[in-house]
Amino acid sequence: MDNLKNLRKKPLFLPIFCMILVLLINLIKSPTFFSVSVNNGVLYGRLIDIINRGSEIAILAVGQTLVVAVSAGTDISVGSVMSLSACSCCMLLAGYGNNSVSTLVVPMAVGMLFGVLMGGVCGAFNGALVAKLKIQPMVATLILFTAARAIGLLLCNNQITYIRYEKYKYLGNFIPGCPIPTPVFVAIIVIIIIAILLRKTALGLYIQSVGINGRAARISGINSDVICFICYLICGICAGIAGIVASSRIYSADSNNIGLNFELDAILAVALGGNSLGGGKFNLAGSIIGAYTIQAITTTLLAMGVSTDKAPVFKAIIVIIIVVVQAPAFKSYMAARKAQRAQVKEAA
């Protein structure tokens, strides 16, 4: 019993527990869940699908974790920024006004970099509003939440821009000769870079100290505004990368659908990862496991016949349950109940 209690206090308990729960439910429902087969030289299977499709959420969750940790608020613009970066990338590659091309106007790398840069600009905009002007994070990001998708539509001239260029599909699908989907590698690279940035430099420590007490951090010589700005910048760049991957998957820029409802997934991933949405200490590994758990839930819902536009109902309920369980008021209420019960037991 004591062992179980200790286990429950481990930071990664919640994400891993949820992950195992979701996988178990799937296994009971369909025993073929874990089967992986090789077709045409690439891997197929539910599990591969989850790892593949979860890449964007994992990339977003990395950025979102930092934002939540540093400012106790969330960046709700990530989904729209994904759409904007995909649109700006495709617009540059296809040339303004063209909605279907098979030859590129500029080299592919330039377009993709431009897309990521666009994400970075959006992140910097959010960061400036939050860090410099002290606007509540979610109101500041609400601006881009609406505007970024609209700007994306303008860039694509209100159309869906298709890039029918073989190499453009590599990033979101498969590189010939490699059985593992490319988005997995992208996610791993992003995670490794951010992890190194946090571990090998003092950035991780700074972010935590600003998140726990911004004033104390400033007094002890940390430029908290800059740290906050950097976090939003990283979040924007992550959203940009995720947008490019999502666009490459469907080799087009569909401004109305890319990144739709991803902000909910990203925030849910952070919450499921055992991070407090009130800021402060954070756990990157938890968020990443949380991200794949979300994708597993989505895939499960889809397999059960719940369409994508209905899935948010379940996710919203999960978010509410998690935040309620995390809420200090709820915790103290439960502790009081427990103490009361113990008293009754003692009296008996």
Binding site: A72, G73, T74, I76, Q136, M138, N261, E263, L264, I267, L277, G278, S307, D309, K310, A311, P312, V313, F314, K315, A316, I317, V319, I320, V323, V324, A327, P328, A329, F330
Partner: peptide
């Protein structure tokens, strides 16, 4: 109740409400 009595950030609560209501529309 969630915002007032459980002191959860209003943005998180109403964002969940936003997705819940949008999903219910589709339901």
């Amino acid at each position: 109740f969630l915002v007032g009595y459980l002191e959860i950030q209003p943005f998180i609560v109403t964002m969940a409400g936003m997705f819940f209501a949008r999903g219910m529309t589709a339901v």
